[in-house]
Every structure is written in C-alpha cells, then in structure tokens.
Design a protein around this nucleic acid. Sequence first.
RNA 1: GGGGGUGUAGCUCAGUUGGUUAGAGCGAUCGCCUGUCACGCGAUAGGUCGAGGGUUCGAGUCCCUUCACUCCCGCCA
Length: 593
Amino acid sequence: MNKYRTHNCSELTKKNNAENVILSGWINKKRDHGNLLFIDLRDNYGVTQCVIDKSNKYFIKLEKIQLESVIKILGKVVNRSNETINSELKTGEIEVIIDSFETLGNCKELPMPVFTDQEYSEEIRLKYRFLDLRRKKIHENIILRSKVISFIRKEMNELGFLEFQTPILTSSSPEGARDFLVPSRLNPGKFYALPQAPQQFKQLIMVSGFDKYFQIAPCFRDEDARADRSPGEFYQLDLEMSFVEQEDVFNVVEKLMKNLFKKFSSKKFLYNKFPRIPYKEAMLKYGTDKPDLRNPLLINDLTSIFTREDVKFDIFKKLVKSGSKVRAIITKNTKDKPRSFFDNIDKWAKDQGASGLAYFTIENGKEISAKGPVGKFFSSESLNEIMKTTGAKVGDSIFFACGKINEVEKISSIAREKIAQDLDLIDKSSFAFCWIVDYPMFEIDDNNKIKFSHNPFSMPQGEIEKVDFKNPLNIKAYQYDIVCNGVELSSGAIRNHKPDLMYKLFSIAGYDKKQVDNKFSGMINALSYGAPPHGGIAPGIDRIVMLLAEEKNIREVTMFPMNQNAQDLMMNAPSEINEDQLKELGLALKSKK
RNA sequence: GGGGGUGUAGCUCAGUUGGUUAGAGCGAUCGCCUGUCACGCGAUAGGUCGAGGGUUCGAGUCCCUUCACUCCCGCCA
C-alpha cells in the first residue's frame, strides 16, 4: 500500500462509504466554525472535503495550519446528508471524517492567494510560478498542452513519421532572426548558435533517406516578445517528408489538425477542406496574409472609381493620381446604424495612425445616391459602378481607405477586424483554417535591395528551365502558411534540393557561391550527393494550444515562461557569471555605460 | 530603438478640484462560533503612495527625470 494515499482527491464517491482512507494534498481552503472545521484538500485530480471537530486531539493543530500546506489525512468516508451535498464537486456526495493527520510540507505566509479567481500581476505570478501553476485554469492549460503533445506524437507515428532529435548546439546562420550564441570553451573565439529551427537538420534527415521525420522541436530566436510570442524559445511540431509535392504536405497537416482540434475542442470547422488562398489574393481581400476567415467582411479595390470624372472626391483623387490605392469594406444593411457607429470607426482609424476612413451609405430615392459626409462627391453612375464591383446593395455602407499600398493594406486589414467586432460578425464558436499559398520568392527591402521574402531554401514554382530570373520579384515559391482564426500557425515549403538552382537564387539575393558554401556548408554539400525532393512545415505548438485553450497570451500555456524582457523571475535568469567562467571561455566584458 | 497603459498594505483595488491622521475587500494575528463549501461575527497589526527632483503655505493628486511590469510598432515565421 502506498504510504501517502489510498485514493486521490477526486476519486471518492458514495461507493466508498464507511471506508477508511488516506488522502494527501494541499489545503485549498479552510472553513473554521470554532468547534467544527472543514478542510478542502486538493491535489492534481480534484478536491475532497474533510471534516474534524474539537473532540479530536488534532483539531487545534489543524485549525492553525497555513493554507497551501501539504498534509496527509487518515479518515473515514461518510455520505453527506442531502442538504449538504455539493453538486459542483466531483466528490461532493461524500466527505472524509478526519481521524488523524500529518504535515508533509509546511507553507509560509503566501505572497499571493492561490485559491481565488482573482487576477494578479504577471510579475508576481512569474516569480512564484510554482504557486500560480496550482491554480485551476493554468493547471488545466498545462495538462491540455501535455495531452495535445502526446496526441500529436501518436498521430504522427500512425501517419508513418519517425521522431528524431537534432542538435541544440549548432552553427549560426545568416538570414532570419538573431541567434542565441554560446561561446565554445574548446574553440576559443568561436561560438555555437542555438537553432532558430531545425531547418537544415531536417533537410539533412531527408537526404539521409529517412523519408518522414517529425519532432516536437525547441526553437530559439533572440527577438522581442509579443503576447503571442515568447521571448527566446518556443516549440514547433517540425515535420519533413520526402518525394512529396505541396498537396501531400497539406493532406497530412489537414488530417492532423482536424483530428487534433476535434479531439480537444467542441468548436466546429468552418471549412472542412481548408481553402487555399494565393498570397496576392489574401493581401487584396483581407489586407494580410493571416486572415481570420470567421470574419465575413471582404476588402475591395476601388482605385479605378477615383479616376472617373463624375467622382469629385478630390483628396482621394489626388492621392490616386500619385499612385495611392483605394480599398473599401462593405457592411451589409447598416443604413439604420447611428451616426456614432460610423464616427467611432473613423475616430478609431485616426487613432491607428491612418488619415481616417471615409464612409457613406447607399440609398435609393429617385436614383441611387450616397448618404454620409462624403456621399455628395459620388454620382449615381459611379455608385452603380461601385455596387457592381463590390456587390453592395441599397442599405449597405461602404468604408474607404486611401494610401500607399502597404499602408492601405494595413489599415483596411485592421479596419476589417474592427468593423466586424463592432457589428459582432465573428463566429466565436468555430475554427476557420486556411492555407496561404504562392508566396513570392523575393521581396524588396527598404534599401531597395532584393532579399528572400521567406525561406531561402524554398523551391521556385514552375519548370526550372522556364523560371524568369531576370524578374526575380515575379518568381513564386512553393511556400505556404497555415492560418487558423487569424493566427499564423506555421509556414512551410517544398524545398529546393538542387544545388545549382540554390546558388542562382542566392546570387539574386546578393550571396556569391563562396558565401553560400561557407554559411550553409552542411546542407549545400549534402544536396550534391543525391537529395530527394522534399518539403515540410512546422506548426507552432504554443499557438495551437492557445487556440484550444482560448487564451490570448502565450504565457498562459507555457509552464515556466520568461517575462517580456526575456528574464526568468523565478530562476533569476539571465544572471551574471564569475570571472573564472569568463576566463575559461576566453571572454572579457566591456564595462556597461 | 519608439509609442500607449499600469504602479497606493502580503494580494486585488478605491482615493473627488492639491487641503486635517491615506481607505476597503481578501490574506495574516488574536478572540467567538458544530454543517460550511467565497462560512459568519468582532478586534489587532500591516504604507518610503515605484524611485529621485521640482512647483506650492501644503503633493498619493500638478510638472520634470528615472525604474519596473504590460500591450503595441520596429524586429521575428
């Protein structure tokens, strides 16, 4: 028999009536009636009410013991009387009459309450994470995370994937994020880097002939945090497959996501087959490459309307002449919305740094007309044209944004979200997955330099002989993202397994052969020894769990997260190291300013 | 690197137009209470109002600087 317990704290029911039991756990709550004391004993599994009265010699001791102390209770299970049954508790039909008890772990005065639904500051939560993690919601989130990961492992195994570990200490690579660096004691002056992702390794695994690989892989990137982005480290379901095309990867991931999200959520899928949306189309219709497809609003391009003679909206017309674009969002049947609805959105847009949103509502008197501050600038014919291109009807309203393409995409994207929220158009009870496909291989940065827009190892689309290297910005890649409810879960690609092509693409981005050989030696070398066509993806585990747990902050699904400044307040990391350690590594610190 | 928000008791917060001795709930300590499940009742302790400077007869409150946490932009797949 186990020394500490015969049952856990959620097991006992009427069936156990009159049994002598041993329970161990934390004191969740005490209710002290002076001559009668109730103790809610909690463990990982649940809560059991235990009772003791003053005739018991342990009564005084138990009365004094601190909440959150760990105790072992010996007692007898009794059925509760009907009036005292607690239907909210799994064990609410019984209670344990305490016979004796033993303190296993004392608790000091708590820096924060554990048994409350009260919110408290992250600082205190992170410093005392071990207390925070005892609380119900986050405790359940972390258990969910564990279950999600083991489910993924099982599914991946069934799909024929093999799990492999890849090195944590590896080499620094150009492109992408800032690396975390680790000095090498045995190689003074040289540094390892922690992997931003096992990208090159997983491709090498394919070259090594393993066919299907996956890993719940830690990834390290030294970039600033966001609510949905941990500083430093996060986990991906990294996977790679040989002899596949894009659709083969999609099939595997769709199957996995559907099984996973059905298993851990009761929400429905908006699309059973995930829509494939070309990058260009996504940027036009949604203003972003991570659209929330639960939101029914679409963005329309109305630039050409503002070249018409019979449209007199001069501010926009002037901007259009100098190359700006006009994008519009139609809201269905909003003619009766109060003026404040429209003005709030306009004011909100100005707060976002845009020049505001113009708007009007389409009316039908003698002829089609527009009502609203800028309505008078639009002729009936131009309105008919707008209705034709956008599908807007009488009674609908139209919001306009005008600006340079990047700006107008951005503002129309967040306006689409804002308007949908205000009109309560987003179906919160569903998951809307989609694939964003056909990403451009290259893009132009602020200094007018061509750079890889995604991953330098992606395969360009089309037959290699026909790729138009003269116009690199037109080259599309077999590069894709998977998005759910506006959350980017992952990006992936069919990889470029042809070294010659790789050199060519790198040369467009300004790397000569020598540089490529030097920086990507492991991989480029391997590709010239018989590499299979291959591709993969790497969905973010943390974000999947966030969606399933309906959390907005990644720290709510991370056991021991760092704060925004990449500090672990509980472990005191990062910390200073002593002179000897520095010396051994051949390092010297510059004095801080 | 930049912008916004927050910072008052161990915790969560209130604090009016600048005005006497800075309050509440929870927690802690002490006392009362035999059926609670957010038990109830009474009392006590607990404050560098994030820090520094300034304005003022007088600052938790106004101004400047600074620090911490957080959200966002940049950055990042």
